[in-house]
Each structure stands twice: as C-alpha cells, then as structure tokens.
Design a protein around this nucleic acid. Sequence first.
RNA 1: GCCGCCGUAGCUCAGCGGGCAGAGCGCCGGCCUUGUAAGCCGGUGGUCGCGGGUUCAAAUCCCGCCGGCGGCUCCA
Length: 622
Amino acid sequence: MKSLLLHAKEFCYRPVKPAIKEYRDEVKEGEEKCFENALVVFVTVEDQDSANPKGVVSAAVDDIVKHLERVKASSVIIYPYAHLSPRLAPPHVAVKVLRLLEEELSSACKVDVHRAPFGWYKEFKLHCYGHPLAELSRTYTAPPERRSYEKKYLVLTPDGKVYEPEEFLEKADPELRILIEKEALGKELGEAENPVTRLAGKFGFEWEPYSDYGHMRYEPHAALMLEAVARYSWLVAQRLGIPVLRVHGTNMFDLSIKAVREHAELFSDRLYDIWADKKHLILRYAACHQQFAILKDYILSYRDLPLGMFEVADSYRFEQPGELLLSFRLRKFHMPDLHILTKDVDEAIKIVREKVQPVIHEEASKLGRSYVALYNVTSSFWEERFNDILEFVKRDGRPALVSIIPPLYYWVINVEYHIIDAAGRPREIATFQIDIGNAKRFGIKYVDSEDKERHPVIIHTALIGSIERYIYMVLDTAVQEYQKGRTPSIPVWLSPIQVRVIPVKPHDEQLAFAEEVLNKLLEAGVRADIDDRDISLGRRIRDAAREWIPFIAVIGSREVETKTINLTVRKTNDRLSVTIDELLAMLRKELKGYPLVEQTLPVRVSQRPTLAYLEKSVFSAR
RNA sequence: GCCGCCGUAGCUCAGCGGGCAGAGCGCCGGCCUUGUAAGCCGGUGGUCGCGGGUUCAAAUCCCGCCGGCGGCUCCA
C-alpha cells in the first residue's frame, strides 16, 4: 500500500462521475464535502496487499495514528488515489482494504474519519500547510498471512489398527520410523552431507547462477536424462489402462480470472508471479490450471469417464531460498501431471486402488526402491471413509503415517509417497490426491445417465514424482549401492551413453570394424559413441568408467579377427567376449518398455569439448 | 526467510598466528603409437566471491553484501 499524507488547512472534494461499474461506493453525484485542519491520506491499494489485508491496514493505522498526534489534525480523510503505484490491486480488493482501513482507523483514533468514495472521478481542492511534517509519503507492507492449523498424527496399519505415533515408533520399520520422527514428532535430523546432489552435478545437473534461485540448467548428460524421464512418464501414464489425452499448455495464467485467483489463494506465498503489460500473471505450480481450462470446454458424458489428461508441465513454485535442493526442491521443475476425471468419490477411490496405486509402487520397485506413505486426510474423510483409507494402506502393504487436517484445500485425501534417501531424509516422490472442489471452481461438467449435469471428482497424480525428483531417486539409489560397497550405476535406459566403443588403435582396420559395430548399435536406437582419441587405451577406459557408461566395447586386432567385441559390463564388473548380435540382444532386454531417446552429444568423443562436470569427483570423502 | 559453516585456476584442493598466489588434474605444444581405471617432457591458466575498513603491507584480520552447503520454518 502506497500513501501520501498531506496535512491540509483546507480540503474539499466533489464526485464528478462514476469511473467503474462494479464495486463502486454509492454517493450523491456532485455533492461537495469540505474539511479544515485535516490529514488527507491518499491511498493506493497494491496487488500484493491482497495477501494480507489486515496486516497492511494495521501497519497503516499505526503509522497514521502516530502522525495524527504529531500534526494535531482534527479529522482524517481517506482518499482513494490510484496513481501512486503501477501494480494496483483489483477493485474488489481495493474497496475491501479501504473500508477496513476506515473501520480500523475510526476505532484507533479520536478524530473523525471520513472516506472519499471509491470508483468515482473526483475533483478536489487542497491547501497544504508548509510545516516540515505536512507532506509525507509512505509504503505499508505486511508479510502474507500464514494459515496455521492443528494437525493430528496417527499410524494406521494394514490390519486396521490405529496407533499414536509415539506408541508405534518401536514397532515401525526403520524407514517409517524416520518419517514419523520427522513429520509427526518434529525431531531434528542433525547435520548430514547430501551425496546425491554431488552426484547430480557429475551428470551435469547444475544451478544456473544467471537466473533466479532454484533454477537449474541441464548440460548434455543431464538434458538426456531429463528428456528420457519425461518421455517415460508418458509411457507410464498410458499403462494405467484408462484413456488419457496428452496436451501441451502454457505456464502463465491471469490472476484476474476468478478460478485462477481462487486456486492461487490456496497456494499463498509460494506463488511465483510476474507482471507484464499491467497484467498480473502467475506461473503455474503444476498442470492443474491448464488442464482444467481445457476440460471446462469439453462436452463430457458419464460414458467418457474415467478420462485422464496428461502433460509434462514446466512448473514454478516460489520456494524460500534456504530450502532449495538441487534436483529436488526447485523454483522451476517439470511435473508429469496426470488428472483423471471420475464420476464420484467412489469411482475415484476405485481407480486409485486398481490403477494408480499399483503403478506408483511398481515404478519405485523397478528402481529397487519402496515408498513409505504419509496420508493427509480431512477429518470428515477420515471418519466417513475409514474403510477406504484402510484399503489403500493394505495395498501399500505397510503401515502408514496419517495426518488429519481441517478441510482447507480442495482435496479430501492427499497421499505423499516418500523414500528415505542416502542422508536419512524422507523425500516425497510420488503422490495422488482426490479433489472434490476444482471441477466446480473451473466449471468442468459431465452429463450423467439421468441427463443431469454433474461435476466430476478429479484424481491428481504424479505417478513417478516430478522429473527432477525421479532423477533424484535414481541417483540416490546409486549412492546407496556405493554405500553398500557395490559399483554404483544408473539404469541403462537412462544412461546418457549406453555403449562406448573403443578401438585399441584408433587408426587402421580396427577403426573400421569399430565403426561398423557403432553403426549397428546406432541403427538399433542405442545411444553409442566411439572414443577415437589418439591416447592410451587405459586412459580411454578410465574416462568411460568415470562417465558411468554401462557397456564398454573394446575392439582390437583380436576382435577384428574373430568379429567379436570385448565387453566390460559396469554393473556386474564382468568382462565378456560377445558378438554384435549378442550385445544387441542384451541391450534389447534392458531397454524393453523404456523410451529410445536420441543422444545429446557428438558420436565421436574426439569432437566433444572437455565437459567440466564429468570431472567432478563424487565420492571424495570415504 | 531464520541460525550455523563455507567461497583460492575450468575441476579437486593446499596456503589463512599478515610479507612475491601454489599442487594435481584439465587445457596447449612436442615426443610416444597404444590390449583394460591417469605414457613421458614442456608450457598455459587467478579481480583469492563483491565492496569497504585496519595496516608500511591483506587470500589471510574486521564490517557489510552476494552466493553455496547444512539445519530450522515451509512443503497447497
């Protein structure tokens, strides 16, 4: 809120004609009002004030009252004045704030408080005193309002028993114990290095220092992984066995749209917003806005449900700088967001149980991981749907932590699936929610079998988590392999380079055969490259190993002779002699069900510059 | 955002009870012509995060800022 405080010997104004239709104060047109020895407060309500109107008004009242005592004016005039800021609050907020200011100021000071009407063109006459305090300008701000509410934690076991968290602690498996201690008991976890972000750096996941906090850049190895996971997330969505439409949206939405604004208010201070052309735009925090905006235009029958909509959405959340974590908590990230429209809560529960939950768990187990669940449920859902919640927990196959909260948001249940990472921290990866509010808010409808219009219940889910978090889980898995004394690796389908071909002598006939092998791999869609640099074999082997390449194919005179490949397999540390067809068969087996993604680097290693990120040592302290 | 720790070459780091800015890797040049985790020799490379202060003299001590890491708050 911006204001100009003028101490006037005399002040008169007259409403000339209406300026806006809505939210206008009712006054008699042309009626002049005059005041003597008045403090005239010109006020501009700014957009940011809507986050905490009470706080801003209270700051303003405190200051105005103090100032009144000093200048000893006999009345105060609150005068709406839209010209002190380029970032105006929308009229409905401005009116609300101005009225609140009038009300609070009246009860806080002894003199008369008058408010000039909002929404009118007015003329005014002002005779300002010349003393030092007669003219002041002020900016009033307040931090956004925090919603605080009581959370009640419980543990629910698959056999239907309910425990207090403390009570269950001894019975809990180590992973659940960590989740309970952190989430429910607020235990501090102490200092721990995070080896995962270090490993991420080695693959070219880095902060971009030329951008805002929490924005990453993805160098060639990382860019490949990001793309591969994005493509994979779509394959996973299609595996649900229900119809899913894939869309591509925009990342900015106009806050003056009511549905957008209402949805945004739930998100409060984590909104990432920008101003352009006098429009206040928010950056989407998931694909919700876009998909709902599309779905509201669809004509849907109950026969069309369940229906999914999917996008890998660039998403933005204004996280506090101190809580950012590379490839995990970001201001910009990529969300493979799936929304499933269902007829009602019963159908939503059925779909989650039969389709969503199995896929979420299956995807974690493909990486050798398992989730420990945190169920956030509203109190009424807990009471009315206990058996359905229990059925979910049964399907998770292990006890879950449950948090019961008031119905503040659009969902009735919001399940977070956490891994426990190498540093012993719970990290949310996958999630699903059942949403009963947004269909109505965005005007999404379907016609039921009795020809009645109804709002669908929407399942929100990130089956594999955000792209970056899925990668975090992959890298964390590698770190944990290393901690167990095994050779750390990442899945072949996700390896930026899958096969490195190394001719012992990178000239003569070895190179020709090596290139033949390379081309056969490339034709099969394998990401293969060739280290044709004129340096020692040992050095090239070392470089390939340092890049964590799963298959290293050495080709020397012996191999040229026998038409074979001398293959080193990272994961098992095996050295094998195989034919090209045998190698292709091995790769086909590994890559089945995963996307083939084109490589992000030149095929010849000699044509690549030195990539500094590859030089990073990962497990230095051991 | 709050508290604590840390910012030295492209990377990993040493130097920091003040006195000419260092090593290894990388990179460049030359030699070697290669069989499974660094072939040999030489060279190159710095606004010691930024700004201010103390001092004859600051990478080193002090203050402020910026950035990173860890913890906390937060996580619809």
